[in-house]
Design a protein around this nucleic acid. Structure first.
Lengths: 233, 233
DNA sequence: AACAGTTTCAAACGTATGTTTGAATTTGTC
DNA sequence: GACAAATTCAAACATACGTTTGAAACTGTT
């Protein structure tokens, strides 16, 4: 006999708020991010939420169900739609690259997700979970592939060329540093506030830093002669 | 009455090998990396090592002691001494930068640490542990600061200038992508084998990618006029 | 106020964990 | 082989975990 679940709700109007359920979701995010799914305990989550441990089963069926909702909620709050939109625009490739970088970095500015999002994503690198992997894959693979095409357009190489991939990784690495280790970088450099203006500046820096090389690649600068010849293959 | 610990050893000669202890350390690394300290269980580690659960207490006093030794061992196997050496060399700054990058990327090549090292480091971002933080700080802070000075020399700005920091982060981000997400990148791009030759090539790419911008900064290219004027302040 | 549906609660349940304990086994020295 | 130290073992211990359970409390409708 499975746990008594929350009924579909027929007698009461769909409640605009479900305070206990919301409090559980709020509390669960940071706990899962800190401790990972296995070591996160229902009791700790409920302690933080001010709820009874059975509430998890009532509202979410079980711990797994709570985790899934936390991920869903997190995906909904991810600030990367702007990258998608920027990639879809019609503009010179260099300009699109700048906009993509800006969109991403703006998602890390004043209105960035809470720190526990950073930690949750980092955890994915250490222990991929199916639920999390699906979420990240669904969100980030199209972006990755879009970037390959974009960088390829700028340097006039196919998207699957080694150089295109390496350049894409170089751009992504710069972005990911902030996306992944933002809070840590802020500790390392007290001047890093990740304000909206600062992230704007950083985005411009990353774009400029990257475009310096990408333009050389495109223009076949003398020091890149060997690459220039391999471009025809 | 605390756990009966492994004696200092007086009657037997210092054993060249301590098979159970070694097996525990071998087994513990991946388990701690996969599950984190809290969720990693002594029983799982002992199951993998083919040892009795009390062996952890006997050889390492407790779970914490085992973890500490795993970290120590891991630090010993870190392949970043080459970066330190390269930073200390006397050569043109650009050449040193290339060598530093090469040294680091070579540490990720054919003889790179086992995958669980990557996972262990990633976990540090999601949940810093004092022991791990000390280890990483001791190892990486001097490198970080050395890089700031080096980049500053190349672009002729002070080490604590914002631009110097941003450039340093841009270089580090590119490196860290492979250092942190190497195994994941290999899944994403089947052509990435992380062989010694390939990592050599990637290192050269990162150096070239970065130096394109750094040279512009140093030479005060026309599109960077505003930066050119702020260099005097 | 009665009623029925919903939500919360405390205790119980079955299972798991790190550590301790005392005995058995192993090992090296004489 | 005797002996003592070292190592391993299984069971016990105290604690903790996610889930279940039945009752109490709450809530909205009539």
């Amino acid at each position: 006999m499975k746990t008594k679940a929350k009924p579909a709700g027929k007698r009461r109007p769909p409640a605009g708020s479900d305070p206990t359920r919301d409090k559980l979701l709020e509390a669960a995010g940071p706990v899962f991010a800190d401790r990972g799914y296995d070591a996160a305990t229902v009791r700790e989550i409920c302690r933080r939420a001010g709820a009874n441990v059975a509430a998890v089963n009532y509202h979410f069926r079980d711990k797994q169900g709570l985790y899934a909702q936390v991920l869903l909620r997190m995906a909904g709050e991810a600030r990367i739609e702007g990258m998608r939109a920027a990639l879809d625009q019609t503009a010179p490739p260099e300009e699109i690259l700048r906009r993509v970088i800006k969109a991403r970095m703006q998602g890390l500015g004043a209105n960035r997700p809470p720190d526990w999002h950073f930690r949750m994503v980092a955890r994915e690198f250490s222990r991929p979970t199916p639920a999390m992997s699906r979420m990240i894959d669904k969100v980030s693979r199209p972006l990755y592939e879009g970037m390959l095409i974009l960088i390829g357009q700028i340097i006039r190489l196919p998207a699957d060329n080694e150089k295109t991939r390496l350049c894409t990784y170089s751009v992504m690495g710069q972005i990911m540093l902030y996306a992944l280790a933002g809070p840590i970088l802020m500790k390392l450099w007290s001047g890093l506030k990740m304000t909206t203006e600062q992230m704007e500046r950083i985005a411009d820096h990353i774009a400029d830093f990257s475009l310096a090389y990408l333009r050389e690649m495109r223009d076949g600068q003398p020091q890149l002669e060997h690459v220039s010849s391999s471009r025809r293959s």
